[in-house]
Design a protein around this nucleic acid. Structure first.
Lengths: 330, 330
DNA sequence: ATTCTAAATGGTTACGTATTCATTTTACTT
DNA sequence: AAGTAAAATGAATACGTAACCATTTAGAAT
């Protein structure tokens, strides 16, 4: 491995000068500069990023702990995060984690002294929150948030749940079911609360059998759908806790020869890119602004890293309904 | 930042012993081990990965240079690659690159002394191939390959193109168009050649206006679709060079009030996960095996890194048609 | 020519770990 | 109890860079 010392020797200068040529060329005379550059090219020298990180105590790396890509929400956010970070000169270490094996993920992130952590998959009372705070590593959560209510970017989840139910009600539905994820996740929790509130405000009955706060695996969503459709009084509409769940539900419905929205109306939350596709045209609730949550989060994180923003990030985006083709008047 | 020296002092042992506790605990007595572990916990010590990388000259990091995630093919592969690599104890630096700014991406990868590079976005005569070879960094390409014909994992692209045309012909189509990407990409090139061969073998006419080897942006695909549909003799079928293009075409078709497959049959190549979705049900050509290309590639790459496989990787998977709902008999 | 100042370069060290080699401690044999 | 081999620990060093401080060189002003 050719080092800056080798370059120095080859160019007949000191290692310091080689370093200067690369980091502050304005302090080195033209002929010296040329000599060194020539040596660099001849030897195919590439500086060692680890050595640099070691001495400078920063790495130019951000750790992204994302949910899995089979959830289209994370496709959008991962794309936005990685691209923006790269543009700003950061590398991104990506991990797709499930709630169980979070801790490993955190450990490797910390071990490599990343400049910041951006994560979606935090639980309401996750101990990692304090750990990261104590380590003094800038971090931000998107989509979900911690009970401490600090350093997050989210959509107004309560409002989203509320609007999703309201939309169904306005379409004339009265038998409306809820299929969402576990309530230990802030996102699902608040969306569910919003949904409940809308039902209550409109004095609609909500039988226990209409409510599923379950695992988000396709299996469990399938089970929920089955149970709903086997009820004596079937719901005519389902509010899904997320677009990913809505898409699952639609997939299952079609597979079982129901048509959407004729047999059953379905609405999601998140306004995922895929939902716009003409084949899908999912009715959903999503952020008013064009920027996705991942983008907002990475912008803020990089501001924090570069000390351009010392205030505590607490962003909640307003939402609206995107009325497409998976719900209908009844 | 607490270092192993601090731990050593706090535990009353040498730094060497601290290092041993973490890396070869079998050589240290139980009481010493406990003392050190206690100190580690009390001080919240986390070893510095960069220092380790520096001295050991390996990093446990792999660079992934993927195509953009709005292409569902790269959603599948990125997911498989990152997950498998993490399972095997590697971190993955992800970049989504377009063909233009590849060089920056390579540079940062090399600068950080990654243990290996896995990339899709190589051009047929990309100079990076030699660069990586000279640097002695293990690498592998998936999907595309370099003209040197070494270290790649692909599907049988010629056969894929051939089968896609053959499928249309078997369905009774005679006016069959081709919409693919630029021919400087091995993948598109071979698929196109396969398509041509099938047309030739079946003695079908192929007017110039039926052929588009264009940029893969939605814009350019839209233009291609428009031009095709404005022809006096419209094609009744389109073979798309990739599922991503097929999905674009379908999206555009629906938007312009054509129905698929009634008005026009469309077939893709890649058998992307999304194509299975009930809303999509894209007819396509894809690998016979269940494993996606990204998975195959990362497996091989890690074998190379760990010296379990010194032979040159050249894998071409056989393909078959997955007959779903976007093509029909005519 | 001489002095002074600014510009350019070099020598040395620190970063935090793993590794090599040297030393001390332990356990066992006779 | 003495000697020896094995086990356990420690001291010193290298990895490749940036940063700090010291030194040399060049250029300007007198």
């Amino acid at each position: 491995m050719v080092s800056s010392k080798d370059v120095a020797k080859h160019a007949g200068v000191s290692q310091t000068t080689v370093s200067r040529v690369l980091n502050s060329p304005e302090f080195v005379k033209k002929p010296t500069f040329d000599k060194v550059m020539k040596a660099i090219n001849e030897l195919n020298y590439v500086p060692n990023g680890h050595a640099r990180s070691l001495v400078q105590n920063k790495t130019g790396t951000i750790a992204l702990l994302s949910g899995p890509l089979h959830n289209p929400f994370f496709v959008d956010t991962t794309s936005a995060i990685v691209n923006y970070a790269n543009e700003m000169g950061y590398r991104v270490n990506v991990q797709f984690v499930n709630d169980e094996k979070l801790n490993e993920a955190y450990a490797t992130a910390i071990e490599h002294k990343v400049d910041g952590v951006i994560l979606s998959c935090i639980l309401l009372d996750d101990p990692i929150f304090d750990k990261l705070s104590r380590m003094d590593i800038p971090f931000i959560t998107y989509n979900r948030k911690h009970k401490n209510n600090e350093y997050f970017v989210e959509i107004d989840n309560f409002q989203a749940g509320y609007l999703s139910a309201k939309h169904m009600i306005e379409q004339g539905h009265t038998a409306i079911a809820w299929v969402g994820g576990t309530l230990s996740v802030s996102t699902f929790n608040n969306r569910y609360l919003g949904f409940l509130q809308a039902m209550k405000d409109n004095k609609l009955p909500l039988p226990k059998q209409y409510i599923f706060n379950t695992d988000t695996s396709k299996q469990d969503i399938t089970r929920a759908f089955h149970e709903l459709m086997q009820l004596e009084h079937r719901p005519t509409a389902i509010c899904a806790g997320a677009d990913s769940l809505a898409l699952y539900l639609i997939d299952i419905a079609i597979q079982e020869d129901f048509t959407v929205p004729e047999d059953i109306s379905i609405i999601g939350i998140d306004n995922v890119d895929l939902s716009r596709h003409c084949l899908v045209q999912l009715t959903t609730v999503g952020s008013i602004s064009e920027q996705n949550l991942g983008y907002l989060a990475i912008c803020k994180l990089i501001e924090m890293i570069e000390n351009k923003n010392n205030s505590c990030i607490q962003i909640t985006e307003s939402v609206k309904v995107f009325d497409r083709s998976t719900t209908r008047k009844i």
